[in-house]
């Protein structure tokens, strides 16, 4: 992937091409979005490679959730284009959404239903037959260590367990791209480590492309692809060491601070700590 630093921001540059000739898991090209007069996203372009972990780093209000709403077609794309494995989300939403699993920032589980019932409902929404859905549910629940709670109501689970269940649910229809919007917010250190470790395993062992939106620096590792989003604009993108080097910083935290300060000197403050 290409890199770009704050001093050389060129919002008109095309989305970076993946290293191989593979179709990108996710391609976002020139996407802008406004809520009335307020611009939430401005000419956003980047790509997520298949079987890669891409961190989308930005403070609250950077536009991450708006971007997720566009990728999942909850909002219509006003300007630009979003493709999932080559399927335009605007033109062929069915084909695109079939390949997509998503974990939203706010919980979307039905608290009054059991774990299994939540999974079966999701399976039905993807047209997966009841027998197949049951088999997959049992398999996923045992993989996330919640098989013994299958019949319990979701409201009896802890925050970390609910997140694990949401990830399991997002994988039930066997997507090839997984979006997670601040999936570890509100969780304790162990639950966070558990979940991020689980997602990284999905990348390495199942070849799923992951877009991981976060504002926590310690969730990003040196081997990740990184996209820095600030005030609706992409400030930098590329492998983590490249972004750090091009920002002239020593680590992600410092690189982020430098990039955002250059982009908007008046608003840039200290980046939030990992325990925020």
């Amino acid at each position: 992937m290409m890199t770009q630093n704050a001093s050389a921001l060129d919002s008109t540059s095309p989305a970076p091409q993946p290293a191989s000739d593979q179709v990108p898991a996710l391609s976002i090209a020139g996407v802008s979005h406004s809520y009335g007069a307020r611009k939430a996203l401005s000419d956003v372009s980047f790509a997520v490679r298949p079987a890669s972990f891409t961190a989308l780093l930005g403070l609250n209000g950077a536009g991450k959730s708006t971007l997720f709403s566009l990728i999942t077609r909850l909002f219509a794309v006003q300007t630009g284009r979003i493709d999932i494995f080559g399927h335009d989300i605007g033109r062929t939403p069915g084909e695109a959404l079939r390949l997509l699993g998503v974990v939203f920032q706010s919980r979307t589980l039905d608290l009054d239903l059991s774990l299994t019932q939540n999974l079966l409902y999701h399976a039905a929404l993807h047209g997966i037959s009841r027998g197949e859905a049951r088999a997959r549910s049992e398999e996923l629940l045992s993989r996330i260590g919640l098989a013994d709670r299958a019949g319990n109501k979701v409201r009896d689970l802890s925050g970390g367990q609910m997140r694990r269940l949401e990830i399991a649910r997002a994988l039930l229809h066997r997507p090839r791209l997984l979006l997670l919007d601040e999936a570890t917010v509100g969780l304790d250190v162990k639950a966070r480590a558990d979940i991020i470790g689980h997602v990284r395993q999905l990348v390495t062992e199942q070849g799923i492309g992951v877009l991981w939106a976060t504002h926590l620096f310690d969730e990003i590792t040196a081997t990740d692809d990184l996209v820095v989003l600030h005030q609706g604009r992409v400030l930098a993108r590329g492998l983590v060491p490249q972004v750090i080097a091009e920002a002239g910083a020593s680590d992600v935290n410092a690189a982020f601070a430098r990039l955002t300060t250059q982009a908007s000197p008046s608003s840039a403050g200290p980046a939030r700590s990992s325990d925020a």
Binding site: T72, R73, L74, P93, G94, E95, A96, L97, R98, L100, V102, F104, S106, R107, T108, L109, D110, Y121, H122, L125, H126
Partner: peptide, 10 residues
């Protein structure tokens, strides 16, 4: 947020 589950169905 439950409505999102329904609306992101393919």
């Amino acid at each position: 947020g439950n409505m999102r589950t329904l609306l992101v169905s393919p």
